[in-house]
Design a binder for these strands. Structure first.
Lengths: 235, 235
DNA sequence: CTCACTTTGTGCACCGGTTCACAAAAGGAC
DNA sequence: GTCCTTTTGTGAACCGGTGCACAAAGTGAG
């Protein structure tokens, strides 16, 4: 029996689906460790914290890998998702900026585990250059282009101060890198074709604060709406 | 002239808008520092990296704070967004888990700067308890409930290992906290009414890898689609 | 074989969010 | 005052994503 692979995934998986595939993968790995051979969309959906219809639609974008009346083969599905995400190959990652966050990222086990390998740590501070962190030698930012080229770095993680981020991003892009994970709290501008993902701790907290405020407002009467706003507010 | 405040924001600001307000706020603060008095939606949109129509619609959810033909008053808009996000009050944050990531978060300046104050650091490891980090004494996780109560903690940041996260989340919720920022790579289950936001470094990398693979696939011909999959793949 | 049961894959209606495009409003020149 | 310019605020079309609900496809019992 021939699978119509090119039919189902001929062009483009929805972005929302791509963002959930790692979630499914993590749940599936846990199941594989516990020795489960097959799993229903319902069970996997619960484990991943999503709706089961959504899960089935997501998986249908990769191809028709389930068996009606049975479910999905855990190992096979792990392989298919891994391949789709590109985790069957080895990605060399460079971390720029070895402050507290950069250090944390370098030591973060989750990076190394599946497909990703921290291939370089770079910093501008001569005080930090030469340090050994997570088995790696911290190199000077001047070496950026050479390191990217020599070690085949294709993903760069920016953990620099905000002021340095754009400048480093420009050099990284010029060196041919097209995937950047940015932890600096700035809006980076990069040419078309370069993918940027942003993780912003303070934004996450502010969103939480908004909802928290709503919750507490509700219990203590409506908000006081001043017509004039306090002129001497210190922001 | 009386502003119809309760009209525009009578109930609920769209979630997508809330997520962008911190972005606008950051851009506005930069402009205030540079001494700008007013700003047009176009300029602010560019600084925040969004479409100007979207920005205007977002701001219109807070009220009608612009002046046609002129733009927005920078200071006034900063105040309105800050108030809407709940940043005019002081939020006590506890960080649970003082590993590399917890340490990085504790030292992260962006937390303290606007409205947030790290009020406690907690860990289960006796080796770490008693350490001084970022001017705070690391306390034992047994003190969790007491610390939350005594210091009025309303937001908890989870930076624990994955296995401990759910357990800590349960205790935190039982202690009355309803806002959690989770860095552990697990799907937490919490009762209705508790807000969870999740930051997952490895998921971000996997999404980047997916797009990176697409880009490189395109340059080196279509992907080779094996009908049989390698049986002895090591995942 | 047929029948009963399970579970996938998907058509379709719905919904939140984005974007365009423009009327309404404000300011300035005269 | 009128006219022209600028920029906001929003109606309406559009678009991607969600979830219901069900037909199709598979298993297993008899």
């Amino acid at each position: 029996m021939i699978r119509r692979l090119s039919q189902a995934r001929e062009r483009g998986i929805p972005e929302a689906t791509v963002a959930r595939l790692p979630l499914y993968l993590r749940a599936l790995n846990g199941m594989a460790e516990r020795g489960l051979a097959t799993v229903s969309s319902e069970d996997l959906a619960v484990a991943a914290g999503v709706n089961s219809a959504k899960l089935r639609k997501d998986l249908s974008h990769l191809g028709s890998y389930g068996t009606r009346g049975v479910g999905y083969d855990v190992e096979y599905l792990i392989y298919q998702i891994s391949r789709e995400l590109g985790l069957t190959q080895d990605w060399a990652v460079a971390i720029v900026g070895v402050g507290n966050l950069g250090r944390a990222l370098a030591n973060y086990g989750g990076f190394v585990s599946r497909g990703f390998r921290v291939a370089a740590l770079l910093d501008a501070d001569p005080e930090v250059v030469g340090d050994h962190i997570a088995g790696l030698n911290v190199e000077h930012i001047d070496e950026l282009e050479a390191v990217i080229r020599r070690r085949g770095v294709s993903i760069v993680v920016l953990a620099t101060p905000a002021v340095a981020a754009q400048q480093v991003a420009d050099r990284v892009v010029a060196a041919g890198v097209t995937s950047i994970l940015n932890f600096a709290p700035v809006v980076l501008s990069v040419p078309e074709g370069v993918d940027i993902r942003k993780v912003d701790l303070s934004i996450e907290l502010q969103i939480l604060a908004f909802h928290e405020q709503r919750k507490t407002d509700r219990t203590s009467g409506g908000p006081a709406m001043a017509e004039e706003w306090p002129e001497a507010v210190d922001l």
